[in-house]
Computed example of a mutant assay.
Amino acid sequence: MTESETGRERAKPIRLSRHARENALYRGSTEEEILETIRTGFWEAAQDERWECRKNFAYREEWNG
């Protein structure tokens, strides 16, 4: 029985670019938060036929202090 026949499909692996990882540090987020957002966040249409995804996380530190 194939994955399609069982109704379960494997998700493609998510790979972050170096640019994305560097921006995550600057923005105070972790790679795990980014992956969770991609998998479970709210997706909406953005400019130029692109998509954006959002999810809020608690930040329990002083921001850029």
Rank of each mutant, 00 (worst) to 15 (best):
E9F: 10
D48K: 10
E33L: 00
I34E: 01
E61P: 05
P13V: 03
N64M: 08
H19Q: 11
A24F: 01
R39Q: 10
R21T: 05
G7D: 04
T30D: 08
E36Q: 15
R60L: 14
G65E: 11
Y59R: 08
T40S: 05
E62K: 15
P13T: 04
L35W: 01
E32H: 07
N56K: 14
D48C: 04
G28Q: 04
A58P: 14
E44V: 10
E22D: 13
R10L: 11
P13C: 00
A20R: 03
E5I: 05
G28I: 00
R50P: 03
G41R: 01
I14F: 03
M1P: 11
R15W: 11
S17W: 05
G28F: 01
T6F: 03
N64H: 08
G65A: 12
S29K: 09
N64I: 10
A11H: 06
E9R: 15
A24T: 05
G41N: 07
G41W: 04
E33G: 00
R54P: 00
E62S: 15
R50T: 07
R27D: 05
S29G: 06
L25K: 08
I34Y: 00
R10N: 07
T2K: 14
E52F: 09
L16D: 00
R39A: 14
E52Y: 08
L35F: 12
W43A: 12
Q47F: 07
E33V: 05
K55W: 02
N56E: 10
M1I: 09
T6V: 05
T40G: 00
E9V: 14
R60Q: 15
E22Q: 11
N64D: 13
W63R: 14
R18I: 13
I34G: 02
G28D: 00
R15K: 15
L25Q: 12
I38H: 02
E36W: 06
M1N: 09
E49P: 04
A58C: 07
S17I: 02
T2N: 13
E32K: 08
W63S: 12
E36M: 13
A24D: 00
L25N: 09
D48V: 02
N23C: 09
T40K: 01
A58S: 14
A20G: 03
W63G: 10
R60D: 15
E32D: 14
S17D: 09
E31A: 05
A46Q: 07
G28W: 02
T6E: 11
W43F: 13
F57S: 02
R54W: 13
E49I: 06
E33W: 01
T2E: 07
E31M: 02
T2V: 04
A58T: 13
T6C: 10
R27G: 06
A58W: 09
S4F: 09
E9K: 15
A58D: 06
W51K: 12
A11I: 01
E36C: 13
E5D: 05
Y26S: 11
F42E: 15
T2P: 08
T2A: 12
